[in-house]
Design a protein around this nucleic acid. Structure first.
Lengths: 115, 115
DNA sequence: TTTGATAGTTCCGAAGTCCCGAACTATGGG
DNA sequence: CCCATAGTTCGGGACTTCGGAACTATCAAA
């Protein structure tokens, strides 16, 4: 298997980050990876909320996150380890990721408050 | 002409904001509106960088920004006044817009630094 | 009031993107 | 070697985006 492409930090573009996180599913995946520090497999994130996500869609979501520079993926045996690149991105675009993730957290919370 | 739809602040969603600003053209339009406080016409923003933007595309860019809750548009005679809703959005999603806009400012600056 | 000019919107077809099932590839265990 | 598991690629249908041409709205001048 060819090794996965990861953009260098200086090639990480804001439009790619915004595009990647403008999909709530991907934002939820990224939140989970960032929260856990490291998620041990794509299939560890096989559902978001109640919605089951097909393998092929999951794979392309991870690819979008990776190519946007948001995560780093390494194969470990048969599975993938996905690390957030939060700290790096924070160095380049201060406050960006935390503002985005807390914006989502805020609406998720208000969605729960109105059942 | 029917009056234009603007979402209430509590209906403004992060994914819509990120999607609207994930297009560099729209982000540039929004930056100009925010900077000026008020841009007096769509045609006042008829080009971004060297690229001329067709009227129909401009119109739909403004529509996306408006429906995302980022700008407020009012007809004044034959033209439109476009105001940024920055302050409102800042109240709901603190730090979001400033982080996004300074992320773009940072890459625009480095793009100019490497000709 | 009619005519004209200017500012935006709508329509629609071509091009592009996204979604997901099915088939495929890669890795490790027995 | 074969199987199971984890993930990727392919392909077609649905959806989105772009931009030219035609349309509508508003105001001003004759």
């Amino acid at each position: 298997m060819r090794s996965l492409f990861h953009p260098a930090l200086e090639d990480v573009r804001p439009e790619a980050i915004l595009h990647a996180l403008s999909d709530p599913t991907r934002a939820a995946i990224f939140a989970r990876i960032s929260g856990a520090g490291c998620v041990e497999a794509c299939t560890a994130v096989s559902a978001v909320g109640d919605r089951v996500i097909p393998k092929s869609s999951l794979s392309s979501h991870f690819k979008v996150l990776r190519e946007a520079g948001l995560i780093r993926c390494e194969r470990h045996g048969v599975e993938m380890r996905n690390h957030s690149r939060c700290a790096e991105v924070e160095a380049r675009y201060p406050g960006l990721l935390s503002a985005i993730m807390s914006a989502y957290a805020r609406t998720d919370a208000s969605a729960m408050a109105t059942p």
